[in-house]
Design a protein around this nucleic acid. Structure first.
Lengths: 185, 185
DNA sequence: CCTAATTAGTATCGTAACGATACCAATAAA
DNA sequence: TTTATTGGTATCGTTACGATACTAATTAGG
């Protein structure tokens, strides 16, 4: 049935409004999305491939977006140490500066104006909805490192954690970033 | 400050995933958005201008999207009775049929899988967030007709309502549609 | 009335997004 | 050592989009 489901209408409208915040400073929505992702992804996840999974796009499209960001001096590429096919992406200082003028801050401010209870309920609902969509569609959750089943808390001492999947040490700061390999604990 | 606000990350990701549902049947996301809007908007709101406000785009862009839908036989234009500048948009039977295959139904299904309490809290949070964004950005809410301050319930008898702003009668079905002129009661 | 000013919409341009397809090089599997 | 897979780029055609310029119909001001 096509029962209206007001929440769906609200989602659609919000998608539109949030999407249209991405036309500032001569940049495009997809470029902002990529920039924001790179600011929040851990070092294993700052690659064109992980970005492709995050954006749910095709790799050709993402490749072009990354090239545009590179030309604009907002992102730099380097080689992955162990795999010469793989590319590492890093924000440049200019890229980080650009994020300070991100118009999506308007959404963050609107979130901050909600009552704490409402905001918490919204976050909970969004998380549940996203999980449901990912379960149906086969995407990746891109959850926080510290909430991952491969996360070895304090494995190397207090505040010095471990990714058991990749066998790599993790700083405390890194454990708060998102990861392409994350699976809920 | 730039405290991460997990809800914002979830929103961004959801925006992406929901947006990418719009590539089915040779159509584009903006075309689905327009089609869905026309299915839910009341007769005063089925115009290129109202669609422009809803999509938060520019009228040039929307004009082209509408032309594409018209060429595809999904939408028909007619003249507004009283104002010869204005264009009325109507879904054709083919347009309504197309909506039955809307891939955003995946989102509706994911919503339906939430517990009722969670779904209600999500709807409440989304509504509050959207209101906040609109208050800051100056958009229109596009709320339901029956929740409008111009809504005259049963003004012409039981189930025969009135829009006091436009002086037009409203059927019961119409009072459940969204309106470009809506202002919360 | 008559002239602005406003409103509703279209046309055109240039850039980016996007899926699709084809391709290349490095790595992993057989 | 083939062969398959993986990570990424290149190119094409269509659409999205903002920007700008335009037309025609309506409304406001004098």
């Amino acid at each position: 049935m096509t029962e209206p489901h007001r929440a769906l209408e609200l989602m659609e409208r919000l998608v539109r409004l949030v999407g249209q915040t991405g036309h500032a400073h001569g940049m495009k929505p997809a470029q902002w999305d990529a920039l924001r992702y790179l600011a929040r992804a851990n070092r294993f996840s700052r690659t064109p491939g992980a970005l492709t999974a995050y954006l749910a796009a095709t790799k050709g499209t993402v490749s072009q977006t990354v090239i545009a960001l590179e030309r604009a001096g907002l992102v730099e590429k380097s080689q992955h140490p162990g795999d010469r096919r793989s590319v590492r992406l890093e924000l440049t200082p200019a890229g980080r500066a650009m994020l300070k003028d991100d118009r999506i801050e308007a959404v963050r401010r609107a979130l901050a104006r909600l009552t704490p209870a409402r905001a918490a309920a919204l976050e909970d609902g969004l998380q549940a909805l996203l999980s449901g969509l990912i379960a149906e569609g086969g995407g990746r959750p891109f959850g926080l490192c510290r909430a991952c089943r491969h996360f070895g808390k304090d494995a190397h001492g207090p505040g010095r954690h471990l990714c058991r999947l990749l066998g790599e040490p993790l700083t405390h700061a890194e454990s708060d970033q998102i990861c392409v390999e994350q699976e809920a604990a």
